[in-house]
Simulated scan of single mutants.
Amino acid sequence: MKNLMLALAVLTLTSANVYAEEVVEDALMEAPSDYVLSLLQSCTDYAADDEIEAKDMNKYLLSCINTELEEGYYQLISSLPKEEM
């Protein structure tokens, strides 16, 4: 009986933790477009420094931008932003 109670307690705590993480992810704000564009420029500069090949550029830039967004607690993006003309 003690094992059952312990298992239920662990399950309850685990479920609460998973729910809390989902709520936090849903609460992330979308980053302002000018901020995302500034990240694009910074990441483009990093790519040049790292000598990233053209065929790998989009993947590199998207990963770089999303890393910065994640550190700033913003929603991640699924495609690169278009630069304003």
Rank of each mutant, 00 (worst) to 15 (best):
K82M: 05
G72Y: 12
M29T: 03
I77Q: 04
V24M: 13
Y35C: 01
T12H: 08
Y74I: 07
L76G: 10
I52G: 09
E53H: 08
M57Q: 06
L6N: 01
S79H: 13
M85I: 03
N66C: 11
D49C: 02
M57G: 05
D45T: 05
A48K: 06
L13G: 04
K82G: 05
L39V: 11
T12L: 15
E53A: 14
N17K: 04
D34T: 06
C43T: 02
L8K: 11
A20P: 00
A47T: 07
D56N: 14
S15M: 04
A20D: 12
A47R: 06
K59F: 02
E30S: 05
D34S: 08
E30V: 02
D50M: 09
K82Q: 08
Y73R: 13
M1L: 09
M29A: 06
S63C: 00
C64F: 02
E30K: 10
D26F: 09
L11R: 00
S33V: 07
L76Y: 12
L76I: 06
E70W: 10
P32S: 01
A9C: 08
D56S: 15
S33Q: 01
T12F: 14
P32T: 01
L37V: 01
Y73V: 11
D26Q: 15
S38K: 12
V36I: 10
G72V: 04
P32R: 00
L40P: 11
A20F: 09
V18N: 10
M5V: 07
L80T: 01
A20R: 12
I52S: 07
Q75F: 06
D49Y: 11
S42Q: 15
S79G: 08
E22S: 09
A54P: 12
L61H: 03
C43R: 02
Y60M: 09
